[in-house]
Design a binder for these strands. Structure first.
Length: 432
RNA sequence: UCCUCGGUAGCUCAACGGUAGAGCGUUCGGCUGUUAACCGAAAUGUUGGGGGUUCGAAUCCCUCCCGAGGAGCCA
């Protein structure tokens, strides 16, 4: 018999003999009967070990194998209302594959620092498994959304010659005879040329920011998805962002019921993510904040408290548009009616999860872009190829970026981004 | 970079100037349906490092190191 069964399949195998391999998630014994919560394939099932049903070596395994020991089991699947999940395995034999001793993460509470030191083991806990399953679903859904709409996946480079936006701090690394290379903080500048080749494109990969940010909403390394489309105007961009978030939330609701339940996430918060999202121009958002008692002035950017304050008035994400150009990146297209405003879009998630999407229509006029590069004191040599896009058949185009970890945090209802990526990179931690 | 809080057993914490403790985990024993089981017993400490005050410091002071939360910036 070569086949091993998988715990998620056991519900359909009641009454049948099965073989399982996995980890001891938890166990207890009670004289002549014992219970093991076995974990495999991201799921758990209760094993029932009766003294009279197994031989001595099997009984010894139950008595002495520590938490997270690996075991191999033969038994019969039974439906029993006393078992968590309603299904259990009545064990006929139990073999130790590897005995683990003194597993550090115990069933009681632990502090963040200890759990982060043991991130490689923390991943095994039910809460972390649930978050990682949601992340996996979100990543698959990101690809599906774009594929269904005719977007091509175009991978942008991670090693880049210069700042894409010229503002944030970059991670620097030596690069042969060329001096330094920098880890990418956005794929956008590389997507705009690709949009001239393939029309609708997107990239999805890791992004690096060397900002010295120590908050629950920041990571040094995070994943960003960035669609960019030729002949997409600002209104089209806003609709794309809405469709995207509604689609992703729908996929989480459709396929992540169990993880959401484990996380005790209020699904109604996700069900309310429907079109249309409220839209505020920057000036209207300033008015709203001032009505709420903020002392913010026109021309100032929003901090995290302002973002949260704006979304408190609504039950779904809020789109803020038409920012003053001084607050936004050099490549953003000015509004035709008021060139002091940029055709920029930020989508702010509710419940304090902050800005999850930032995007804009891009400047397509060569001379305007050139003057903006000069005004921002950016090295023209480094942007010559970028200007070429405006020199050879320029075209109206728009795109945005979405931070995957912030989105997953919002879906899962977890407060800290470090739980939404398998191995978080924070300012003071690069281990494990 | 700045502000706030913290560092005592493997973990979470108590003791706040006078003999360093509890719960959980671990080990051993008991118990035939446990859901973070329960009952009994045992082992476990350079109180983050250095310096100072004091008869006496985990406790007060200085300094360094480390961690957590937040600000700015962003996704």
């Amino acid at each position: 018999m070569s086949g091993w069964n998988s715990i998620p399949d056991l519900g359909a195998l009641v009454g049948e003999k099965v073989r399982l391999r996995g980890w001891i998630d938890g166990h207890r014994s009670s004289g002549r009967i014992g219970f093991i919560r076995l974990r495999d394939s991201g799921a758990t099932v209760q094993l029932v070990v009766s003294r009279k049903a197994v031989d001595d070596p099997s009984w010894e395994v139950l008595q002495h194998a520590g938490q997270e020991s690996t075991i191999a089991v033969t038994g019969t699947v039974a439906a029993d209302p006393r078992s968590p999940g309603g299904v259990e395995v009545q064990v006929s034999s139990l073999a130790l594959v590897h005995g683990a001793e003194n597993y550090p993460i115990t069933p009681k509470e632990h502090g963040a620092a200890f759990l982060m030191d043991n991130r490689h083991l923390w991943l095994r806990s039910s809460r972390q498994r649930a978050v990682l399953r949601i992340r996996s679903e979100v990543c698959h859904a990101i690809h599906d959304f774009h594929r269904e709409r005719g977007y091509y996946l175009v991978d942008s480079p991670i090693l880049t010659p210069a700042a894409c936006e010229g503002t944030s701090t970059l991670f620097e690394t030596p690069y042969f005879d060329h001096g330094s290379a920098y880890l990418s903080q956005s794929g956008q500048l590389y997507l705009e040329p690709a949009a001239a080749a393939l029309g609708k494109v997107y990239c999805f990969g890791p992004t690096f920011r060397a900002e010295k940010s120590k908050t629950r909403r920041h990571l040094m390394e995070f994943w960003m998805v960035e669609p960019e489309a030729a002949f997409l105007d600002f209104e089209g961009l806003c609709e794309l962002a809405e469709d995207f978030l509604v689609y992703l939330a729908g996929r989480v609701l459709e396929n992540c019921g169990e993880p959401l339940a484990i996380l005790e996430r209020d699904a109604s918060k996700l069900e309310s993510i429907r079109r249309p999202f409220p839209r505020l121009r920057y000036a209207e958002a300033i008015d709203l904040l001032r009505r709420q008692g903020s002392g913010i002035e026109f021309g100032e950017d929003f901090g995290a408290p302002e973002e949260t304050s704006i979304t408190r008035e609504f039950d779904r994400p809020v789109m803020v548009t038409h920012y003053p150009t001084s607050l936004k990146a050099f490549y953003m297209q000015p509004d035709a009616d008021d060139p002091s405003l940029a055709l920029a879009l930020d989508v702010i998630a509710p419940e304090g999860y902050g800005e999850i999407i930032g995007g804009s229509q891009r400047i397509h006029d060569h001379d305007l872009l050139l003057s903006r590069l000069k005004a921002h004191d950016l090295p023209l040599d480094a942007f010559r190829w970028y200007l070429d896009i405006r020199r050879y058949g320029t075209f109206e185009h728009s795109g945005f970026g979405m931070g995957v970890e912030r989105f997953v945090a919002w879906m899962a209802g977890v407060p800290h981004l470090r739980e939404t990526i398998p191995y978080p990179r924070t300012m003071d931690r690069i281990y494990p």
